[in-house]
Amino acid sequence: MSQRAILWGVIRYEFKMQARRRSLWIVFAGIALIMLAAIPGNVINSGRNLQGMSLLQQVAAVTLDINWLPALGIGVFLADRFPRERSNRVDELFESMVGTLNTRLAGKYLGCLLATLLPAFLAYCFAIIFLAFSKHTLLVLPLSLITYTVIVVPGVCFVTAFTLACTSLMWVPLYQFFFIGYWFWGNMLGPKNGLPTLSTTILTPRGSFIAAGLFGISPLNWTQGATPLPGIASLLLLLLIPLLVMLLFYRYLRWQQSRK
């Protein structure tokens, strides 16, 4: 069996194990309800925010709005995925098998990412279906897939890589505490309150620069007037940095193994 076939198997099982977590669905459903129903000025709630925008921009605006959810969920629900290999003592067993560490790591990354993204994606689908009904066009559906892939997925890849890597060095609840804290101060309070954050840089996993640069959606001061260049740079960096992080993480684990 090739490592590719093993990778597929690992993705399948990591997805299954993560998607079965009841808490994942409950928490996502709760946050989605708050976001869709309770936040005043939400694009879904008040159609006026979308006025004067093209259909693609309207879809991109909804995508950006809902992009609070996936990364937050990933930071919280992916944090225990790697440490539990050790706490469940399966790492030693798996080490004696032909599936290599990099295959298992890649499988874990993709399987967990996809499973954690699933409830957020379903919440997004509801918002998009709502938009499609209100705009009386099914064109919203393919456009939403494009905007989701471009605005949401890079940030999610970025957060996944850091979450898996950081939790190999850090106590899981502490990481979750810091991550939730950072997510709120970084995105709600921001630099105007004197707090350090990535949210004003092209490295923001929220996808603000991608949305501003590629779709002309600038709900935030610091992204206004952004050209496509920072948007593309943000997109590429959010995809390339996780690759680098995972490579370094793999090297670190190999180094740890060789020291045993």
Partner: peptide, 25 residues
Amino acid sequence: PQEMGVYPDLNAREFLDYVAILKGL
């Protein structure tokens, strides 16, 4: 191994299937 680890949320059949995949079956 001396301390046999399992994934507690998988059933016996699923766990064995997963291990079989990692063993290259």
